[in-house]
Deep mutational scan, measured.
Amino acid sequence: TKEGQWDCSACLVQNEGSSTKCAACQNPRKQ
């Protein structure tokens, strides 16, 4: 995982660090 990116806890899609919700399932980003 690149720095600043995060993996969705629900569907495991990798998202940009600037995103607050998963691009695939709209699950909110977990801190």
Rank of each mutant, 00 (worst) to 15 (best):
A10I: 05
G4W: 03
K30N: 00
S18W: 01
Q26F: 08
A23K: 13
A23P: 05
S9A: 10
G4Y: 14
E3P: 00
D7I: 06
Q5T: 11
T1W: 00
K30S: 08
T20K: 08
A10Y: 03
C11G: 06
R29Q: 15
T20H: 07
V13M: 04
G17Q: 10
C11W: 00
R29A: 15
N27G: 14
P28H: 06
E3C: 00
A24P: 05
K30H: 14
P28V: 13
C25R: 02
S19D: 15
K2G: 07
T1E: 09
S18H: 10
C11D: 02
G17H: 13
K2P: 00
C8Y: 00
K30E: 08
Q31V: 07
V13N: 08
S19V: 09
A24F: 05
S19A: 12
S9N: 08
A23F: 03
N27H: 13
G4P: 07
Q31G: 15
S9D: 12
C8Q: 06
Q5C: 13
T20P: 08
N27V: 11
S19R: 08
Q26W: 03
C8R: 01
Q14A: 13
C25V: 03
N27Q: 15
E16M: 10
C25K: 08
S19I: 12
S19Q: 14
Q31P: 11
A10F: 00
T1C: 10
P28I: 09
V13C: 04
R29C: 12
N15D: 08
E16D: 10
D7Y: 04
C8M: 01
C8I: 00
C8W: 00
E16K: 04
Q14S: 12
P28A: 11
S18A: 11
W6G: 10
C8P: 01
T1R: 04
N27P: 07
R29Y: 08
V13P: 03
V13T: 08
Q31I: 00
D7T: 05
S9L: 12
A23S: 09
N27T: 15
C25Q: 06
T20A: 11
Q31H: 13
E16A: 10
G17I: 11
N27D: 15
W6T: 15
K2N: 13
G17E: 14
A23L: 04
K21W: 03
Q14N: 11
G4F: 13
A10W: 00
W6P: 00
C11V: 00
C8F: 00
C8T: 05
C22N: 02
N15P: 01
A24W: 01
A24I: 06
R29K: 13
E3I: 04
A24S: 11
L12Y: 11
C22Q: 05
G4N: 15
S18P: 04
T20I: 09
N27F: 08
S18Y: 08
A23Q: 09
C25W: 01
E3T: 05
Q5E: 01
P28K: 15
V13R: 10
R29G: 14
K21A: 06
A24Y: 02
S9E: 14
R29V: 14
N15M: 03
S9Y: 08
K30F: 12
P28N: 09
C25H: 06
G17N: 12
D7V: 04
Q5L: 10
A24G: 14
C25G: 04
G17S: 13
A10Q: 09
S19W: 10
S18N: 13
D7M: 07
K21M: 04
N27W: 06
C22R: 02
P28S: 09
C25A: 03
S19C: 12
A10K: 00
E16I: 10
V13E: 09
E16G: 07
C25L: 01
A10V: 02
K21Y: 03
C11N: 05
Q26H: 13
T20S: 09
V13W: 06
Q31S: 12
S18I: 06
S9V: 04
C25F: 00
L12C: 07
C25D: 09
W6H: 11
N15W: 00
C22L: 02
E16C: 03
C11L: 00
Q26R: 10
Q14K: 13
T1S: 06
C22I: 01
G17F: 11
A24E: 12
E16R: 01
W6F: 04
W6K: 14
W6E: 14
K2Q: 08
K21R: 07
R29N: 14
